[in-house]
Computed example of a mutant assay.
Amino acid sequence: MTSAAPEKSSILIVDDMEENLVALQAVLGPLEQQLVTVRSGEEALKAMLRQDFALVLLDVLMPGMDGFETANNIKRLDQTKDVPIILLTGTDVDRDYAYRGYALGAADFLAKPIDPWVLRTKVNVFLDLDRKNRQLAVQAEQLRRLLVAEHASPGADPQTAAVGAEQLAQITEQLDRIEAMLRSQETSEGPELADYIAELERSIRRLETG
C-alpha cells in the first residue's frame, strides 16, 4: 500500500522578544518546515486551536501569561495536550525551572544562548515522530476506504463484511499501540516497536488479499 508524501510539519515559536523570534527562525530555517511565530501565551493558544503543530518552542519568561502557565493550558486542552513542548529560558534562572517544566509535561528544557546544532537535532526528533504519526493516520484512512469499497457495498456478503469489520478493528488497535509507542521517547526505536509494525503490515496484507 502506498502513501502520499506527508506535508511539511508546523512548528510554533513563542517568545515576546522579536529578536529571539528572528534568531530561532534563522536556526530552524534549514529544516524547511512551516514556522509560525507569536509573541504571547494567549496568541499561542489561539494559534494551536486554529491548526496542528508538531512541536512548540516556548519561552518561559514572558510578561502576562508566562511559559509555565501557557504550557499548563496547552496540556489541559484535549486538542493540544499531546503536542510536545520545548521550554526555552535565559541563563540566569532558578534551577527549579527545569523541574517545573517537566512536571507540567514539557518534553525538554533548553537555556539560552541555545546551540543551533543542539536545537535542530532535538527538533528533528519530534519532526520525525510527527511524520510517522501522520503516515499512520494516512494508512488508517486508506484501510477504512478499502473496507468500505470491498465489504460495505450494497450486495456484499454479510459474513465477509463482518470479517472486514473485525480486521479493521484489529488494525485500528495496532495503530493505536504504535502511535503510543512513537510518543514514548524510551521505546520509539526499540525492537518491540518493530514487532508491532511488522504485525500491522501482515494485517494490511491479509486485508488486501482477503
Rank of each mutant, 00 (worst) to 15 (best):
V93R: 13
A107K: 12
I74F: 00
L88Q: 11
I114F: 07
A106V: 08
W117H: 15
Y99K: 15
K75N: 10
G105W: 02
L104F: 00
D94H: 05
T70S: 02
E69T: 12
A103W: 00
R95C: 09
T80M: 06
L110H: 08
I114M: 08
E69C: 06
I86K: 03
L77A: 12
D82G: 09
T91W: 12
I85D: 07
A71E: 09
K75M: 09
Y102E: 11
F109A: 09
P84F: 00
A106H: 02
R100K: 15
V118W: 03
E69P: 03
P116F: 00
L104V: 09
L119H: 05
L87N: 08
T80C: 09
L88V: 05
V83P: 05
K81L: 03
I74G: 04
A103E: 15
Y99W: 11
D108E: 13
V83F: 01
I114Y: 01
D96R: 12
T89V: 02
T89R: 01
V118S: 13
D96N: 14
A111P: 06
Y97P: 02
G101A: 07
Y102T: 11
G90D: 11
I86C: 06
G101Y: 03
L87H: 09
G105A: 13
R100D: 11
L87D: 10
K75L: 07
I74N: 02
L88F: 05
G90Q: 05
P84I: 02
A71D: 10
T89K: 01
I85Q: 03
D82C: 05
G105V: 08
R95D: 15
K81D: 12
D82I: 06
D94R: 00
K81H: 08
T70L: 00
L87Y: 07
V83I: 13
I86L: 06
P116C: 02
I74V: 11
